[in-house]
Nucleic acid binder design. Sequence first.
DNA 1: CAGTGGTCTAGACCACATG
DNA 2: ATGTGGTCTAGACCACTGC
Lengths: 259, 259
Amino acid sequence: MDRGAVQTASGDKRRSDVPKRAPIQSGLPAYLNIVNTISDRISSGLYPAGSRLPSESQFCHEFAVSPMTLRRALLILADRGLITAEKGRGTFVRSLGLSDSVFTLQQLTGEWANGTTQVRLLSAATAKADAQVAAVLDIPPGERVVYLRRLLLKNDTPAVYQTEYVIFDPRRPLVESQLKLTSLHGLFQSARGERFSRGEVTLSAISLDPETARILDEPPAAPALCLEHIFRDSTGHAVSWGRFLLRSDLFKLKARLGP
Amino acid sequence: MDRGAVQTASGDKRRSDVPKRAPIQSGLPAYLNIVNTISDRISSGLYPAGSRLPSESQFCHEFAVSPMTLRRALLILADRGLITAEKGRGTFVRSLGLSDSVFTLQQLTGEWANGTTQVRLLSAATAKADAQVAAVLDIPPGERVVYLRRLLLKNDTPAVYQTEYVIFDPRRPLVESQLKLTSLHGLFQSARGERFSRGEVTLSAISLDPETARILDEPPAAPALCLEHIFRDSTGHAVSWGRFLLRSDLFKLKARLGP
DNA sequence: CAGTGGTCTAGACCACATG
DNA sequence: ATGTGGTCTAGACCACTGC
């Protein structure tokens, strides 16, 4: 390409005499086309697992793009776990394993955040933190906390039982906004009055205690997914601690492996 | 910067008269420094949730990098869910919610893939596929399949019970390599003889049946995490179907929210 | 040493949103 | 019309690997 002409600093708009970029398939950006093409070649077996990909400069020639664009595509593929790049050696096709599974809670809210769900506040009261709550929230035992219990229903079927302890802060009326939460979206998406910036979430399997089983309309000791969460404010202090108990027959987390 | 001089096509190496890039803090690449800086500003509240970030050109000035480098940093932050970019409007700080949690199985193998774990093959036999197996693997009922049962122990404590049905293909001696799997790493990382390229994984909570409970040394009907998997070859045909039952007291999935 | 990936530049054009 | 993010170029230097 002989277009190494000096480009004057002022806006030199005469580009019509310069060949435009290669036509983009189906309107997608070039880097996405490259991602799809290489991805297809991997899944079709053209680039077998463990093999070395053509070098970046080879790809640049083939796709007629600049190194940065090609590199962007490779970074995306690496991010998806399909390839790994090793400095000085080359880029290789990864063979996927179980441990590459990635589970998201988006799916849950995706299926559940429609109109047929409702949130029922079972109780809301202030209480004094017992030893366990105090330890998790990092406050002195006996400090006042707000104890919330909610039940989420889908088509009038109990599906999720939530309990939560929120630090009581008179300066910040968290409670009021918390109590008004009657939509599932609010609970999951940007709950906590969008004040927290950090958090930890733990997923495990538990056995329902008799009372919870009754509330969820399940047999005693039925299995359930337990989603325990701690939210923290910008200073790192815990703001709330609680857990969602998800009926095991209604909630599954799904992940896909590969291209 | 007055270095708009024509760069001749031949390798013009005289760059010593040109100011080198700004010194990189702590040896990190520039884009990572930018990621960390902006991330810190978000978590410190300097850029509050929902607010608009400075424009890209402003950031370019502040960090003294080219647009591509700045953009790379923003893409990473967007990928982490901390910000969202809206074309023509600006880039905004996202407020995180529960549904942004991402769980990975890497943690599991990370903690478990050390020397003190062992894999014990309980049984391996060919059998005829019953209706359910045939349906999942998409083969005619009665077709021969390999039925595997494995027990994973950690410090001599039963931790995981796996059952798996593998399509019997005499042309491809999958079974032999399968049977030799005695390391946890092999089971999770690139198992399946690194032949499959696709798969689906489902995570749910179940209650252990009496026999499995006995094998796992748990009380009957104890809760457990169930990891069901289907692996497919490059043509999309199912190759194996099975599930891992993880003792609930030993396995939890953890996710972090925020910077 | 040559080849590879990792990073970066200093611009450019485009599509889009807003006033 | 202006400013924004989205994409792209045609090179460059560096660190690393392997022969």
